[in-house]
Design a binder for these strands. Structure first.
Length: 258
DNA sequence: AACTGGGACAACCGCTCAGAT
DNA sequence: AATCTGAGCGGTTGTCCCAGT
C-alpha cells in the first residue's frame, strides 16, 4: 500500500524516525510538538512525537528492570496518590509515567490484588524471572494466606500545621504551578528511606481470635535478596489513618478529589 | 517444529486544563 | 468572555516475544 506524503505514520517508531526526532529536539528544544513533526519532516502527529521523546528518547530516561527499591516506592506512592502516574514518576528519577503505569498494570496490581502470601517476588518479576519466582514462592508456600483484615498503619507520612506550605492563604490558592507541587508538600516530608522496608524473612501467624496477622522472624534460610512487603504498610486506603488524614488535609486545601 | 496463551511494553486515544488570542 | 491551541495525563489497545504444550 502506498503512503501519501501527508499521511500520518502510526505504530512503532523506526530508528530513522528516532534519530530525526532526537536531532531536531536537541537542536531546537522541546515544545510546539505540532511544529516539531512538520519541521522535522516526520510523518507523525505532534502528540506522538512528544510522547516518543518524553517516554523513550529524552536523555536521562532509565531503561530496564525496576529495582526492589523502586518497586517499594511505587507501591507506597500508589497508596498515597492512587493512579496519579505522573506524580509517582516525578518521585522516581529516570522513570516515566507510562513505564510505571505499565509496570503497575502488568506486575503490581495483580500481585497486590491476589496477595496470596506475605512474600513478594524479586524486582521485575516478569516472565524472564518466572522460574526464580516459582522457586522462591515454593520455599514460602507454608506461609499463612492473608485473609484477615490487615493492620492499617502509616509509617512515614508527616505533615503539620506549621509546614511552610500547608497553610495557603485560601483553600483554593496554592503556591505550586501544577498538581505535583500541590501534592509535593504532602509527600516532601516523607523520608524516602523510611518508605523502604528491610527484609527479614518473615512467617505469618494468624491469630484466630483477633484476626491479627503477626510476623515472626523465621530466618533459618537467608533470603536477603528479597524484600518483604510488610502487611502493616498494606493499609486499606479507605480505612487507614493515612487516608483519613490525607482527606482531612485535602479537604482543607480544596483538593477533594485526592 | 508448530501452535498457543499470556506477559511486557510501546503507542494510541480521549479527555482535561492552562495560556494565548 | 469565548474560542483556540498546546501540553499533560490516564486508560486502553496493539504488537512482539517467550515459555509451555
Amino acid at each position: 500500500m502506498s503512503r501519501s506524503a501527508n499521511e500520518i505514520n502510526k505504530g512503532a517508531w523506526s530508528r530513522e524516525e528516532d534519530e530525526t526526532l532526537t536531532n531536531y529536539v536537541t537542536l531546537h528544544g522541546e515544545g510546539k510538538w505540532q511544529k516539531v513533526a512538520q519541521n522535522a519532516g516526520l510523518q507523525r502527529c505532534g502528540k506522538s512525537c512528544r510522547q516518543r521523546w518524553l517516554n523513550y528518547l529524552k536523555p536521562g530516561i532509565k531503561r530496564g528492570d525496576i529495582s526492589v527499591d523502586e518497586e517499594d516506592m511505587i507501591i507506597r506512592l500508589h497508596h498515597l496518590l492512587g493512579n496519579r502516574w505522573a506524580l509517582i514518576a516525578k518521585r522516581l528519577p529516570g522513570r516515566t509515567d507510562n513505564e510505571i503505569k505499565n509496570y503497575w498494570n502488568t506486575n503490581l496490581s495483580k500481585k497486590l490484588q491476589t496477595r496470596p502470601t506475605a512474600w513478594s517476588p524479586p524486582p521485575a518479576a516478569s516472565a524472564k524471572h518466572h522460574s526464580k519466582y516459582a522457586e522462591e514462592k515454593a520455599k514460602h508456600n507454608n506461609i499463612v494466606t492473608l485473609e484477615a483484615p490487615r493492620p492499617t498503619r502509616a509509617k512515614a507520612v508527616y505533615y503539620g500545621s506549621d509546614h511552610k506550605r500547608s497553610s495557603p492563604s485560601s483553600p483554593n490558592q496554592m503556591e505550586g504551578d501544577d498538581d505535583a507541587s500541590d501534592l509535593n508538600f504532602l509527600i516532601d516530608d516523607i523520608d524516602q528511606n523510611q518508605l523502604l522496608i528491610p527484609e527479614p524473612p518473615l512467617e505469618n501467624i494468624e491469630d484466630q481470635n483477633t484476626n491479627k496477622v503477626e510476623l515472626h522472624n523465621n530466618s533459618s534460610s537467608s533470603s536477603s535478596d528479597f524484600h518483604q512487603l510488610l502487611p502493616e504498610i498494606m493499609f486499606d486506603p479507605l480505612d487507614s489513618f493515612l487516608d483519613v488524614e490525607l482527606k482531612r488535609v485535602a479537604s482543607f486545601l480544596g483538593l477533594e478529589d485526592l
